[in-house]
């Protein structure tokens, strides 16, 4: 009975079934051609830079910045090895930092969002609406704008150069709370919570055993949002972290802007390519659970 509530959500309708085949009139052919041109042109726009990066990262070491859209020899693996060896493995160190920040930070942010969203949806307490309004307002505050105040705050309490200075802000996701509240309100029926209470289940047990399971699609989406957000963050870690704590974006950015080091510019390209692999892997793994319709339904 709970599932019907999920299915009837406006955002979760399945793919439409195309009925009947259009007769191949002239108009239809023109229309098909137009669609094909748009799709192929757009796909080229999206993929060409990534293809170029792949080709450039595969050229023999030292020739990365040359132009050209096709391979001349395939040296990707040798290049990756050289990249890993460069400056005593600093690149892998950055990647490990990024994985740590993104993995732990996104998991924590998702858990906090789930609890807060569930509480906002299912419990009545004073200031609930005021709190929700505050969270909504926080969604509209650009994160990048907070970087400067955060830096000032952390330097006041001597937390700059501490990984916490990047972790703590990463745990807060107003948009995640917002999505979780909307989803919890629709997907976790009050009757089930009541029934579990009758059976003597504690509130924590109800949350972790029942609510979390029903909210899973929303939680995966919130998790992925946060993984990308944290992985891509650049300004805040630049400000608050020491170089041994840098994530891969800051490390590469530093290599990139170190001008005069011709050798480095080759490693920037190889590193840029390598840095995309972990996030792409995460998305290939989670793609089927990724629910953009949650975002689309968020304003209803």
């Amino acid at each position: 009975m709970g599932m019907s509530a999920i299915r009837s959500r406006p955002g979760s309708a399945g793919p439409k079934i195309r009925t009947g085949a259009d007769p191949l009139s002239r108009a239809v052919r023109v229309r098909r051609l137009a669609l094909a041109v748009i799709l192929i042109g757009a796909a080229l726009y999206f993929l060409a830079p990534l293809w170029w990066l792949f080709v450039a990262a595969s050229r023999s070491l030292g020739n990365q910045s040359g132009t050209g859209w096709w391979f001349s020899g395939f040296h990707l693996f040798a290049n990756l090895k050289a990249l890993v060896d460069e400056q005593n493995g600093v690149f892998l160190h950055w990647v490990a930092n990024s994985l740590l920040y993104s993995g732990v930070g996104a998991a924590g942010a998702t858990l906090l969002s789930a609890m807060a969203g569930y509480a906002l949806a299912k419990y009545r307490f004073r200031f609930r609406e005021a709190l929700f309004t505050a969270i909504l307002a926080a969604v509209l505050v650009p994160k990048m704008l907070l970087a400067t105040p955060l830096y000032l705050l952390f330097s006041a309490v001597h937390l700059t150069g501490n990984r916490l200075a990047f972790f703590l802000p990463s745990l807060v996701s107003p948009f995640g709370v917002y999505l979780c509240r909307i989803f919890a309100a629709g997907a976790v029926p009050d009757e089930i919570i009541e029934a579990a209470r009758m059976d003597g289940a504690g509130e924590l047990a109800i949350f972790f055993r029942i609510a979390v399971r029903m909210m899973t699609p929303a939680l995966v989406t919130v998790f992925l949002f946060n993984v990308v957000d944290i992985w891509n963050n650049y300004l805040l870690p630049t400000l608050v972290l020491k170089d041994s704590q840098w994530p891969v974006t800051v490390g590469l950015g530093n290599w990139f802007s170190t001008k005069g080091a011709v050798e480095l510019s080759n490693y920037v390209i190889i590193g840029a390519f390598a840095s995309l692999i972990p996030l792409a892997a995460v998305f290939v793994f989670f793609q089927r659970y990724w629910r953009t319709d949650l975002t689309a339904g968020a304003v209803k």
Partner: peptide
Amino acid sequence: AFLPYVVPGVVAAMI
């Protein structure tokens, strides 16, 4: 179309 979203802004700018 979704691939570029996974590319960090910093890396996209480099490419």
